Simulated scan of single mutants.
Amino acid sequence: MLTRSKLDNPGRDQVINIRVQQTQRDLIDHAATILGKTRSDFMLEVACREAENVICDNTFFALDEERYQEFMAILDSPPKVDEELRKFLRTKSPWD
């Protein structure tokens, strides 16, 4: 049998608890009210959006045209000869 919370929030089966100051809760509640959202929905939406921003900031980067061309030239150029790497790759693994 589904509980009332399962009906209200399908797919949400995890709980996150957080302690805040009264002023912080009031600020969050005010913003949520302005957007017509519950405190939980507002906090989840904002936290997920910020998490995506953090991940993107560590995944994507922007370059001006000159640096972009330099970067592409490095990617397009053949790798440098590295004798130590070649030696390592030719060495049998201890488990072989």
Results as ranks from 00 to 15, higher is better:
Arg4Asp: 15
Lys6His: 10
Leu7Gln: 12
Asp8Gln: 06
Arg12Met: 05
Asp13Ser: 12
Val15Arg: 11
Ile16Val: 08
Ile16Tyr: 04
Asn17Phe: 09
Asn17Lys: 03
Ile18Pro: 10
Arg19Ile: 09
Arg19Phe: 08
Val20Phe: 01
Val20Gly: 09
Gln21Cys: 02
Gln22Tyr: 06
Thr23Gln: 12
Gln24Asn: 12
Arg25Gly: 04
Leu27Arg: 03
Leu27Asp: 06
Leu27Gln: 14
Ile28Phe: 09
Asp29Tyr: 07
His30Tyr: 11
His30Cys: 10
His30Leu: 08
Ala31Lys: 04
Ala32Cys: 08
Thr33Tyr: 00
Ile34Tyr: 00
Ile34Asn: 11
Leu35Val: 03
Gly36His: 03
Lys37Tyr: 13
Lys37Arg: 13
Thr38Ser: 06
Thr38Val: 05
Arg39Gln: 07
Arg39Asp: 01
Arg39Cys: 07
Ser40Met: 03
Ser40Glu: 05
Asp41Arg: 12
Asp41Glu: 15
Asp41Tyr: 09
Leu44Thr: 13
Val46Asp: 09
Ala47Asn: 05
Ala47Tyr: 05
Arg49Ser: 10
Arg49Ile: 04
Glu50Ala: 09
Glu50Leu: 05
Ala51Arg: 15
Glu52Asn: 12
Asn53Glu: 15
Ile55Arg: 15
Cys56Ala: 15
Asn58Pro: 09
Phe61Arg: 11
Phe61Thr: 01
Ala62Ser: 15
Leu63His: 10
Leu63Asp: 04
Asp64Lys: 08
Glu65Ile: 15
Glu66Gln: 11
Glu66Arg: 15
Gln69Leu: 14
Glu70Ala: 09
Phe71Glu: 06
Phe71Ser: 01
Met72Gln: 14
Ala73His: 04
Ala73Trp: 07
Leu75Phe: 04
Ser77Pro: 11
Pro79Val: 00
Pro79Trp: 01
Val81Leu: 01
Val81Ile: 04
Asp82Phe: 08
Glu83Phe: 13
Glu84Gln: 02
Arg86Tyr: 05
Arg86Thr: 02
Lys87Asn: 08
Phe88His: 13
Phe88Lys: 11
Phe88Thr: 11
Leu89His: 03
Leu89Val: 06
Arg90Tyr: 02
Thr91Lys: 05
Lys92Arg: 15
Trp95Leu: 08
Trp95Val: 03
